[in-house]
Design a protein around this nucleic acid. Structure first.
Lengths: 415, 415
DNA sequence: GCTATTTTTTGTGAGATGCGTATTAAATCT
DNA sequence: AGATTTAATACGCATCTCACAAAAAATAGC
C-alpha cells in the first residue's frame, strides 16, 4: 500500500469526482457532492481544476432541469445547476482486440464513445510477432485516420488478446495468437506507434466493458466468463478488477475436470476445460464428425453458425457436443460460484451464439451443482456482444488510467 | 472506496508505522522512515502520538546496536537510535477456535504473544447455539482469568469456525458446528461477555496467522488450503485477506469434481470435494471399512492418528482412502493454481498428520496437473500447526482492527 | 579531558488539502 | 420589483506531510 500524502488525497478525491461524472452523465456539482460524500467546497475546487485542464465541460443548455425537478418536488426554483460532463475531446484512445481469426480496432474519445471501428477478418494465429504487429499497427493507424484524427492526438492504445497476459510488464506470457512465449507486445507497439501502449487479457477488457457499459454497471462484485476461441475468467471484486497474484490473469481454460465416464475419451483421465468447452474445442469436435467440410468449418469465421445450423437440423452428434460443452462449463461455473459467491455471473463470447443448445445444459448443470447455501446468491446472465465492444473495453482500460492518474498534473486549486 | 480527508491520510500512515513496528520488532524511527517511505518528521510525529497513547514503548537498553551496526559500516557513532516496539500491555484480546470436537482459546497481548491457552476437548457439533455459546463464554472467561486479567482489560474476542461466515455481519451462515443457519454468534457473545466480539471463517484465521507469524511472512500473495474437519480456502491478495464478494468466505469443500471412474461410487455422477478429501470424509470412509471400531474412530479426537496407524501397518484399503483424498485435493489445488497463480500454497490442518501417505499423492497430482506455464510459479509447502495457533490467528484478527482503526482517537501531532 | 564528528531526533515554517460558514449568483414565485 | 430558493464560491481554520535547520547524544581523535 502506498503512503498517504496530500497529493494522494487529492488524487483519490479527484478520481471519485471523475468517476461520478463518467458514470452519471451530465451531473451537477451538488449531486457529485451527494454521491461522493465530499463537501460542496471540495467538489467545487476539484471541478474547477478539471475544467481548467479541459477534462470536463459544462453542458450549455440546462434542458435536463425539468425532468430532474419533476422527480424531486416542484418545478425549478433557485439558481439552476450547471451540468458537467466529460469533455469528449479531452483525449482519444484506441482499443484493439485480437482473436485468432480477426483483429478489431476501435477509436474512442474521452467519454469512451466509439468514433470508428475497423475489423480485419484475417487469420493471425501462429503468425510471427512482427507480422501481427504489422497488422495491428496498420489497423490502428487506419482507424485513427478514419476518425479524422492524427497520431499525436492519441493518448494511448490497449491491446487485448486471449491467454495469459501480464499487463504491468506489458508482456504476453502465452497466447494462442503467438507462437512465442513472453512476447513484449506493449513495447513493440509503443516503439512502432510512438504512443503509450498496453496489453491485457481479452477477458479483462470485456469485464471492464461490462462494468462500465454493460450488465455489470453499478455492481461492485461480479464475474465474467468468456467463451471465445479460448475460455477466460474476469473478476470484479470491490469495484476493482481482480488481477490475481503477480498480475497474471487467470485462464479458465486451464481448469481441470474429469470427463464423464460416458464420454468419448474413456472416462478416466483428466482433461482441461479448454479441451471441451471452448469455441475451438467445439469446432474441432464437430469437424471431426464431419469429414467432408471439416476444413471449411475450421477455417471459416462463421464456423459456429454452421455448427448451430447442424444442431438445429437435428444432428444428434452435434447436439451432443454442444451439450457436453455446456455441461463442462456449467461444472466450472458452479465451482466458481462456490469460490467467489458472486451476485452475478455474466457469460460473454462467440460460442454463446449456439444459444439454448449450449446454455440449457449449462444452466441446468449449474443449478443442480451449485451448493445449497449459494443457490440464490448468483444470477447468471448472458450477454453476447460484438467484437467492437471488446475493443471498446480495451479503450476503456486506457481511459481508466487516464482518469485515475492524469498525465497533466492539475495545479493547485488557487489558480 | 472511501473519500480521502486528512483524517484518513493520517490513519493510513499511522497504520503503516504500526505495521512496520509490528513486523520488524524493536525498530528505530529512522528505519521506520526508510521502510515506509515516510519522512523522518512524519514518523516522529506519529510515533510521538503512539507513545502518548501508550500503544508503543521505547526499548530501554540499546543492546541491539552492535549487531545492527556491525552489519552496516562501523561501530556505533552518533546519537544512538531509540528502538520502539509495540507495548505488550496496550491491549489484550482473546481468540477462539471452534472445531467439531474441541474448543481452543488463546489470550494474547497487544503483540500477539500468547499468554495462556485453553483447550476444551468437548464434542460440540450440532449442539444448540446456547450450549455452544455457554461453553465458549466459559472458556473465554477462564482463559482470561488464567492470564491474570479481568474482562474489562480485554479489548475484543474473535471466534473462528468452519463453514461460511459473514464477518461484517457477525453471522455464521452455515457451519458443521451449528445445527441452525444464519447464527448471529458475534452479537450473542458480545451480549454475554460485554466486549467486542467477531466471528470469522477458521481458514481466515490460519491464513492471517501464516501471514503474520508463519510461512506467509513477507509475502503479499499466497493461498492457504486447510484440511481440517472441513476444507477451507484462504487467500492473501496484495497483502490483504481476500474475502470474496459479500464478505462470504469461499468454502473449498463445496468444490465439485467427478470421482474417477474406478472409484467406489461408479464413476459417473458428481461429488463434492468435502465428501472425499476432508478429515471428516477420511474418517468416515475408514470407519466404513472397519465395522468393529467404527464408532470409536468417529468419536475419538485422535481418529486421524488411528487411521495413520492402520495405513502404516499396511492396510491397503486405508492407504487407498488416503491416496484418493490426496489426489482429489491435489486436483483442486491444481485448479486453484490455475486460477490464482499464487507464489505459495500453504497446506494446513489436522488431516496433514497423515504425512506422506496423504501428501505424496497430492503432490504428484498437483505437479502432473498444473498447467505448463505455471509449473514454476507455485511452491507448495505444508505447515502443520496446533489449534492454539489458529486461536492466535483469531486474536491477531482482532489486533489487526485495533492497529488499523484505533479505538482511542490519537490527537493532533501537536499534543 | 575536551573538542570535532556523526547520527538520530525534533522544532519550525511552507505548501496543500478538506471542511464549515458566510457570501455571492441566478433563477422562480408572489 | 422584491422575496425566496437553490447552486456555487470565497474565506478562514484545522490538519497533514515534508524540507530544512537545530538540538541531542553518542563516539573518535588529539
Amino acid at each position: 500500500m502506498k503512503t498517504a500524502d496530500p497529493e494522494l488525497m487529492r488524487a483519490i478525491n479527484r478520481f471519485h469526482v471523475m468517476d461520478a461524472i463518467r458514470r452519471f452523465g451530465p451531473i451537477a456539482r451538488v449531486e457529485i457532492s451527494d454521491r461522493t460524500q465530499l463537501s460542496p467546497t471540495t467538489v467545487s475546487a476539484i471541478t474547477a481544476a478539471l475544467l481548467d485542464d479541459a477534462l470536463i465541460v459544462p453542458r450549455a443548455i440546462d434542458s435536463v432541469r425539468d425532468a430532474k425537478d419533476a422527480a424531486k418536488d416542484g418545478v425549478g426554483r433557485g439558481r439552476p445547476r450547471v451540468m458537467l460532463e466529460l469533455n469528449p475531446d479531452a483525449a482519444f484512445v484506441v482499443g484493439v482486440k485480437l482473436a485468432p481469426d480477426q483483429i478489431t480496432v476501435a477509436t474512442t474519445n474521452f467519454r469512451a464513445d466509439v468514433l470508428k471501428t475497423l475489423t480485419l477478418p484475417i487469420r493471425i494465429d501462429r503468425q510471427p510477432v512482427s507480422v501481427i504487429a504489422d497488422l495491428v499497427e496498420d489497423g490502428v493507424r487506419r482507424c485513427i485516420a478514419d476518425a479524422d484524427l492524427t497520431m499525436d492526438k492519441i493518448n494511448g492504445v490497449c491491446v487485448g488478446l486471449p491467454g495469459v497476459v501480464e499487463r504491468a510488464a506489458g508482456v504476453c506470457r502465452q497466447s494462442p495468437i503467438f507462437r512465442e512465449r513472453d512476447v513484449p507486445f506493449a513495447a513493440e507497439l509503443k516503439s512502432r506507434l510512438g504512443i503509450d501502449a498496453s496489453v491485457d487479457s481479452d477477458v479483462n477488457l470485456v469485464t471492464l466493458a461490462e462494468h462500465w457499459f454493460g450488465m455489470g454497471r453499478g455492481l461492485d462484485d461480479f464475474i465474467v466468463v468468456s467463451v471465445e476461441h479460448n475460455l477466460g475468467l474476469g473478476v470484479i471484486h470491490n469495484g476493482e478488477l481482480f488481477r490475481g497474484a503477480n498480475g497474471i490473469s487467470p485462464d479458465l481454460g486451464d481448469l481441470l475436470f474429469r470427463p464423464p465416464a460416458t464420454g468419448s475419451n474413456g472416462g478416466s483421465g483428466v482433461g482441461r476445460l479448454s479441451e471441451v468447452a471452448s469455441e475451438a474445442a467445439i469446432l474441432e469436435e464437430v469437424a471431426a464428425l464431419l469429414n467432408g467440410e471439416a476444413e471449411s468449418l475450421r477455417r471459416s469465421v462463421r464456423g459456429m453458425a454452421r455448427v448451430v445450423e447442424l444442431a438445429e437440423a437435428g444432428d444428434q452428434r452435434v447436439l451432443g457436443v454442444l451439450a457436453t460443452a455446456g455441461e463442462a462449463l456449467g461444472f466450472a461455473i458452479a465451482n466458481l460460484i462456490a469460490l467467489f459467491a458472486p451476485p452475478k455471473v455474466i457469460l460473454a463470447g462467440a460460442a454463446l451464439s449456439a444459444g439454448d443448445l449450449f446454455l440449457s445444459p449449462l444452466r441446468s448443470t449449474v443449478s443442480s451443482l451449485t451448493p445449497a447455501n449459494l443457490t440464490d446468491v448468483s444470477e447468471i446472465v448472458v450477454h453476447q456482444w460484438g467484437a467492437d465492444m471488446w475493443a471498446r473495453g480495451a479503450a476503456a482500460m486506457t481511459l481508466r488510467d487516464l482518469y485515475g492518474a492524469p498525465w497533466n498534473t492539475t495545479g493547485p486549486a488557487t489558480t
